[in-house]
Amino acid sequence: MPGATAAGDIEILAVDDGRGGGDVPRAGGDDDGASGGRGASRILSRRYFTGMGLGIVAILMFFMALVSAYIVRKGTGMDWMPVALPPVLFINTAILLASSLTLELARRRLGLGDRSGFQTYWQVTTGLGLLFLAGQLIAWRQLVAAGAYFSSNPASSFFYTFTATHGVHLLGGIVALVVVAARSFDRAKVTRATAAELTSVYWHFMDGLWVFLLALLYLGR
């Protein structure tokens, strides 16, 4: 068998050509994993943070498409009639900002191991979220009462579209809040703390997105 004599050469040819990560195998994805103090669960859950980040990018693209439509549409046609924003919107905004705050307080409690404190703040957050949605509905009613319907003019169309799509996304966040509070994490792939952290990322994003949309609707009338 000539193969036996060739075996010596093989070692040489097999040495990595340096194109990749050198001949010492290098962890492809988990470079920071081993160093972090939070251990294996942190690494396991990293994909969820990646996924959340990507989800946020996708949602952002969706809203940016609407925003650019808003800007373009505002520049065409003569039918743009600025919507007088119902003042309740600013209360809603304050509620939503407050909910971000209570969310963080809840997470801090969880970090300290205070389960009941966590539940309290968490439920307050959920309640504030619902309150925000209710407030948005009130804003709609007020607009309707003022005669600005969905199809009255492009500004009102956009107002309803923005608030509705944002509301639907926020509703998703509320569902997540409820799940995180109610679910037992005994057999789950992530800990409650991680789930709470993920939810908070989404929630703050929704919060920021709303502030941005409101600024657009207000300043870009």
Partner: peptide
């Protein structure tokens, strides 16, 4: 991004 095996660097 997250599930590559050990040694599977991007350029491999």
């Amino acid at each position: 991004i997250d599930l590559r095996a050990k040694g599977m660097s991007l350029l491999r």
